[in-house]
Amino acid sequence: MGELNARKNRQDGAGGDVETALDDLYTTPPSDFVARRETLAAAAKADGRAEDARRIHAARRPTLAAWAANLLLRSLPEESRQFLELGQALREAYRTLDADGLRDLSAQRRRIVSALSRQAVQLAHEAGHRLSDPVQQDLEATLRAVLADHDAADEWAGGRLATALTPPSDFRPGTTPPAERPPARSRPAPATGARAAKDELAERRRARQERLARAREAAEAAERHLNEERARQAEADAGLRRARERTEQARERMSAAEEHLRGTREEYRRAEKDQREAERLSRSAAEVLAQAEREAHERAQRVRRMQTDTE
């Protein structure tokens, strides 16, 4: 399908460097878009690629909703592919099925758009941007447009939206867009009309049922995949919470250990000071003792000499 191959066809052609640069540019947050655009354009110009520099410099800064839609496409390629396939199936179904046959598809469509929108909001948040309610509404409108309109699907598949997309006003359950209404059929000739009309009606019913079945399968597959992704996201979030808790506990233990270490170091400094003082006192006492021993020895010798003289 066209929307699935648009990006690949563009990258397979000449000018791969500039295409890569533009792809990179349109996943850059809007707040950094202009600076990034000038950097990429200057690099292309410095390489002698004047035309590439012109194309990069002409790139329009995306709105926040358009950037989030581009980010969703780049970050979740498998979910985006299934979403585009679902859009093709829904468009085929809407051309032929009545409102009753499409009621469950419409409910699935709303759930899938809501789920993808939440994922885009999460991706934007992880990239440092919180989407306001009006921006989220523009994002959901863009996703609804991708489901409803082939041109919108092709545009989103290119990954370079500059503004949010608007779903066509005439895309409603049980109605066929005017440009796609089947041409009016002339009334069959009386001779063959009854049998031909009956066969044609049966064939149209069978075709409608087949399209409905394909659309349901595509919607159910997309919804299953989104549920799996939500489960993985929940598991990853739980793992992140546990890791944060362990980090906080380790930080508390480290703080306690550092406090204990500071106390131990202070105690060590006091003990070292006491040891130096004790060593000083010990040396002083040793000197006094040595002096006393010398004096005692001298006095003992004097006493012996005196005893010898008296004898």
Rank of each mutant, 00 (worst) to 15 (best):
residue 83 F to Y: 15
residue 273 K to R: 13
residue 230 R to T: 03
residue 231 A to F: 10
residue 282 S to G: 06
residue 282 S to W: 08
residue 266 E to C: 01
residue 84 L to V: 13
residue 249 Q to H: 11
residue 65 A to D: 05
residue 253 R to P: 05
residue 272 E to W: 10
residue 70 N to Y: 04
residue 48 G to I: 04
residue 259 E to D: 15
residue 278 A to H: 07
residue 88 Q to D: 13
residue 289 L to A: 02
residue 239 G to I: 03
residue 94 Y to F: 09
residue 311 E to Q: 07
residue 138 D to R: 15
residue 119 Q to G: 11
residue 42 A to P: 04
residue 237 D to P: 11
residue 234 A to N: 05
residue 192 T to R: 02
residue 143 L to W: 09
residue 52 D to Y: 15
residue 236 A to K: 12
residue 154 D to E: 14
residue 151 D to K: 09
residue 186 S to A: 13
residue 311 E to Y: 03
residue 80 S to F: 00
residue 71 L to Q: 07
residue 230 R to V: 03
residue 175 T to R: 12
residue 114 S to N: 12
residue 68 A to Q: 02
residue 148 A to F: 01
residue 268 Y to S: 04
residue 76 L to Y: 13
residue 185 R to S: 07
residue 44 A to Y: 07
residue 291 Q to W: 04
residue 256 A to F: 09
residue 124 A to S: 06
residue 49 R to A: 14
residue 206 R to P: 02
residue 76 L to G: 02
residue 68 A to V: 03
residue 188 P to C: 07
residue 89 A to G: 00
residue 295 E to L: 14
residue 83 F to K: 02
residue 37 R to I: 01
residue 161 L to D: 00
residue 34 V to H: 14
residue 191 A to F: 08
residue 291 Q to V: 06
residue 265 R to L: 11
residue 220 E to H: 10
residue 195 R to W: 06
residue 143 L to F: 10
residue 165 L to H: 01
residue 106 S to Y: 08
residue 121 V to I: 03
residue 224 R to V: 14
residue 140 E to R: 15
residue 84 L to K: 00
residue 231 A to S: 12
residue 139 L to K: 03
residue 216 R to I: 06
residue 52 D to K: 06
residue 244 R to C: 05
residue 83 F to A: 04
residue 190 P to N: 07
residue 92 E to K: 13
residue 33 F to Y: 12
residue 274 D to C: 09
residue 4 L to M: 10
residue 306 M to T: 03
residue 224 R to G: 08
residue 309 D to H: 08
residue 148 A to K: 03
residue 189 A to T: 06
residue 51 E to C: 07
residue 156 W to V: 01
residue 24 D to R: 14
residue 86 L to G: 00
residue 61 R to G: 03
residue 309 D to E: 13
residue 299 R to T: 05
residue 250 A to Y: 07
residue 216 R to K: 11
residue 108 Q to V: 00
residue 148 A to Q: 11
residue 61 R to K: 13
residue 185 R to W: 02
residue 155 E to T: 10
residue 23 D to G: 01
residue 265 R to C: 00
residue 10 R to I: 01
residue 256 A to D: 09
residue 254 M to K: 12
residue 73 L to H: 12
residue 129 H to N: 05
residue 161 L to C: 01
residue 225 H to V: 00
residue 193 G to Q: 11
residue 179 A to W: 05
residue 261 L to H: 06
